[in-house]
Design a protein around this nucleic acid. Structure first.
Length: 475
RNA sequence: CGGAGCGUGGCGCAGUCCGGCUAGCGCACCUGAAUGGGGUUCAGGGGGUCGUAGGUUCAAAUCCUAUCGCUCCGACCA
């Protein structure tokens, strides 16, 4: 392993792939576009997953599992859906050495198979709402792939709910996008714009789509989670009706929503620096790495006694830690290694500290060193972890806000997009204009934020507009 | 699919233009010693037949043909 990564300022894309590999997050799989998620990267994903899963369950959702093989005919039942997904599907044509009568699509998303089952399970308003989520892999045969951000196969959760009214489905859709916002901002320390997608950017088969949009270190946008109100589109396609309280047949209202392993890429690109990853304490696989430093065996024995006490305390307090007592590499090596891996706090303890009854704590985000008396170690660690979490969010928020510019004309728009950053502007244009802007600048409307309170003139058409939108170049 | 680049020990590369001794370097790995609070040093050592197939030649990593694969840039996308 070489000793450093490409600088972000030199080549951001290269920096990203360097970091992913050198921090042992992931590696390329043998099939084009596939990725092996290595233990350290998977641990991060598991922590993100645990938070999301808890929030889903707290809001009444349950987990299940649906098959990955989807009959070809199912894919064709919803017109927009097939147009959106069929071209990028992997299809199984043979099984057991024989050609199959009907090709099987490997799920790119599971609306079709799930709604074919919901048809069986939903008869009455008493069966609603149905709130099911699954944590699975999906496959999309993308042209261009990037570790975590866009891989041929990826892991995600997909929630699929069924409701008795459009309004109820709408409440669900909004509830979930709020959960995603909390996940991104409060746990991943990744600030997001939350809002609605324009028609041209919405999900294939949705009435409308909400998303959270984050700004990465290169000022490009990462769509980090989506929640769709599907209306009755899938219920109609799969003929899923229920009997209302008034004894009338009505089509069921649906939602679907998901976040994926892309979030891992989001964490990396929101916080990382030229030394590697910086992970938010709340989701870091290890919140603190303990590095004992010794010369002689006697020193080591004494140190490990002290370390054992620290371990006990950390275990009791549910602090995720790792003791790196590997004596094959130098302390300096370990410092660099764990900085690459983004562990929020480092604890150094050596003979000198033992004598002074202290330890050294070093923050990954600021590099700041603290000499801490052993008896106040735990409270200090807790305090620092909390402070790191908060200041990581604040720093990311400031970066995003500093690089989000308001404009009132197309020239300024082009200048800012060209230089890099988001544009916040009043908008009264249509889909055609959106497409034209995309063609000319590569920027798209990331979302129409929920949070709207003023009116102004559209930067593009000059017409009065009561909503502003966020534009950016996206991943 | 269009454009560019690259396939040489585990990883990263040099050598290829202008064929020629036992294919070289850094990292990693193994042995030993000294070191150990910011990627430690010295000594010794193991491992590759040059993506694959075919051709030219006395001689091919190097030239020719075909083929496979990967990465990056564009259109598509969580």
């Amino acid at each position: 392993m070489s000793i450093s990564v490409t600088k972000r300022s030199e080549d951001y894309a290269k920096w990203y792939t360097d970091v992913v590999q050198k921090a042992e997050m992931a590696d390329y799989g043998p099939v084009k576009g596939t990725m092996v998620i290595r233990p350290y990267g998977f641990a991060l994903w598991e922590n993100i997953k645990a938070v999301a899963d808890r929030m889903f369950k707290e809001t009444g959702h349950v987990n299940a599992y649906f098959p990955m093989f989807i009959p070809e005919s199912y894919m064709h039942k919803e017109a927009e859906h097939v147009a959106g997904f069929a071209p990028e599907c992997a299809v199984v044509t043979h099984g057991g050495g024989k050609k199959l009568d009907e090709p099987l699509y490997i799920r790119p998303t599971s609306e079709t198979i799930i709604w074919s089952m919901y048809k069986k399970w939903i008869n009455s308003y008493r069966d609603l709402p149905l709130l099911i989520n699954q944590w699975v892999n999906v496959v999309r045969w993308e042209m261009r792939t990037r570790l975590f951000l866009r891989t041929t196969e990826f892991l995600w959760q997909e929630g699929h709910t069924a409701h008795a009214s459009f309004e109820e489905a709408e409440v669900e859709t909004r509830k979930i996008i709020e959960i995603y916002r909390v996940l991104a901002e409060d746990y991943m320390a990744m600030p997001v714009y939350v809002g609605k997608k324009t028609d041209s950017e919405k999900f294939a088969g949705a009435v409308h789509t909400y998303s959270i949009e984050a700004m990465m270190g290169d000022m490009k946008a990462l769509q980090s989670g989506t929640s769709h109100n599907l209306g009755q589109n899938f219920a109609k396609a799969f003929d899923v009706t229920f009997l209302t309280r008034e004894n009338k047949q009505e089509y069921v209202y649906a939602t679907s929503w998901g976040v994926s392993t892309r979030l891992v890429g989001g964490v990396i690109m929101t916080h990382g620096d030229d030394k590697g990853l910086i992970l938010p304490p709340k989701i870091a696989p290890y919140q603190i790495v303990i590095i004992p430093i010794w010369r002689t065996d006697e020193q080591k024995a004494l140190l490990m006694e002290e370390v054992a006490k620290i371990k006990l305390q950390f275990n009791r307090e549910d602090i995720r830690f790792l003791v790196d007592d590997n004596d094959q590499v130098s302390a300096g090596w370990k410092f660099n290694q764990w900085e690459m891996k983004g562990v929020p706090l480092r604890l150094e303890i050596g003979p000198n500290d033992l004598e002074k009854k202290q330890v050294v704590l070093v923050r990954r985000d600021t590099g700041e060193k603290h000499f801490v008396a052993v008896e106040s170690l735990f409270s200090m660690v807790n305090h620092l972890l909390e402070d790191i979490q908060n200041s990581m969010f604040q720093r990311a928020l400031k970066f995003r806000n500093d690089n989000t510019h308001e404009v009132d004309n197309y020239d300024d728009f082009k200048r800012i997009i060209e230089a890099g950053g988001f544009v916040k502007a009043f908008w009264a244009g249509d889909g055609k204009m959106e497409a034209k802007i995309k063609e000319e600048t590569k920027a798209t409307i990331r979302c129409i934020p929920f949070d709207q309170n003023q009116a102004g003139a559209c930067f593009y058409t000059g017409k009065p507009a009561d909503t502003y939108v966020i534009f950016g170049k996206s991943y």
